[in-house]
Amino acid sequence: MSASDTQETYRVVVNHEEQYSIWFADRELPAGWRPAGAEGTRQECLDHIERVWTDLTPLSVRRERASAR
C-alpha cells in the first residue's frame, strides 16, 4: 500500500446492478455510479464493501431468478 492510499479520501459507490467499487472522493463520479454512503481511506472503504456486499450476483440476475420461481 502506498502512502497516497492512506492519505487520499475515497467513497464507496454502487451502480445500477448493485455492484460496489471505490472512487476518489474529490472527483466526479463516472456515469452509471452513485454514492453508497461511506467515505474514508481506501482500506476503510474496502472493509465497508466487504461487510455490505454479501451477494455478488448482479441485480438483474437476482430479479430474473426471482421471476422464474
Score class of each variant (00 low, 15 high):
Met1Tyr: 10
Ser2Glu: 15
Ala3Val: 10
Ser4Asp: 14
Ser4Met: 11
Asp5Met: 13
Asp5His: 15
Thr6Lys: 13
Thr6Arg: 12
Thr6Tyr: 10
Thr6Ile: 13
Gln7Ile: 07
Gln7Leu: 13
Glu8Thr: 14
Glu8Ser: 13
Glu8Leu: 10
Thr9Glu: 15
Thr9Val: 14
Thr9Met: 11
Thr9Ser: 12
Tyr10Phe: 15
Arg11Asn: 00
Arg11Leu: 11
Val12Met: 02
Val13Thr: 08
Val14Asp: 02
Val14Met: 10
Asn15Ile: 08
His16Leu: 09
His16Ser: 14
Glu17Met: 08
Glu17Tyr: 04
Glu18Pro: 00
Glu18Ala: 07
Glu18Val: 05
Tyr20Val: 02
Tyr20Glu: 03
Tyr20Thr: 03
Tyr20His: 13
Ser21Tyr: 01
Ser21Val: 00
Ser21Asn: 15
Ile22Ser: 00
Ile22Asn: 00
Ile22Thr: 10
Ile22Lys: 00
Trp23Glu: 06
Trp23Lys: 01
Phe24Lys: 13
Phe24His: 14
Phe24Arg: 15
Phe24Ile: 09
Phe24Ser: 12
Ala25Glu: 13
Ala25Ser: 14
Asp26Pro: 00
Asp26Ala: 10
Asp26Cys: 05
Asp26Leu: 07
Arg27Cys: 12
Arg27Ile: 02
Arg27Trp: 12
Glu28Val: 04
Glu28His: 03
Glu28Ala: 12
Pro30Met: 07
Ala31Thr: 09
Trp33Cys: 01
Trp33Thr: 00
Arg34Thr: 15
Arg34Cys: 07
Pro35Ile: 01
Ala36Gly: 03
Ala36Phe: 05
Gly37Pro: 08
Gly37Thr: 09
Gly37Trp: 10
Ala38Phe: 15
Ala38Thr: 08
Ala38Lys: 15
Ala38Asn: 06
Glu39Ile: 10
Glu39Gln: 15
Glu39Phe: 04
Glu39Lys: 06
Gly40Cys: 03
Gly40Asn: 03
Gly40Phe: 02
Thr41Gln: 03
Thr41Glu: 02
Arg42Gln: 14
Arg42Pro: 01
Arg42Ile: 01
Arg42Val: 01
Arg42Gly: 00
Gln43Leu: 09
Gln43Val: 06
Glu44Ser: 14
Glu44Lys: 09
Glu44Leu: 05
Cys45Asn: 01
Cys45Met: 06
Cys45Glu: 00
Cys45Tyr: 01
Leu46Val: 10
Leu46Pro: 01
Leu46Arg: 11
Asp47Gly: 04
Asp47Trp: 06
Asp47Glu: 15
His48Asn: 05
His48Tyr: 15
Ile49Cys: 09
Ile49Thr: 05
Ile49Gly: 02
Ile49Ala: 04
Ile49Asn: 02
Glu50Pro: 00
Glu50Gly: 06
Arg51Gln: 12
Arg51His: 08
Val52Ser: 04
Val52Pro: 03
Val52Leu: 07
Val52Trp: 05
Trp53Phe: 11
Thr54Tyr: 07
Thr54Val: 14
Asp55His: 06
Asp55Ala: 06
Leu56Ile: 09
Leu56Asn: 05
Pro58Val: 04
Pro58Gly: 05
Leu59Pro: 00
Ser60Lys: 07
Ser60Cys: 11
Ser60Ile: 03
Val61Pro: 01
Val61Ala: 13
Val61Tyr: 11
Arg62His: 10
Arg62Thr: 08
Arg62Leu: 14
Arg62Gln: 13
Arg63Ile: 11
Glu64Gln: 12
Glu64Asn: 04
Arg65Val: 06
Arg65Asp: 06
Arg65Gly: 04
Ala66Cys: 10
Ala66Trp: 13
Ala66Arg: 15
Ala66Asn: 10
Ser67His: 12
Ser67Thr: 10
Ala68Lys: 14
Arg69Cys: 05
Arg69His: 09
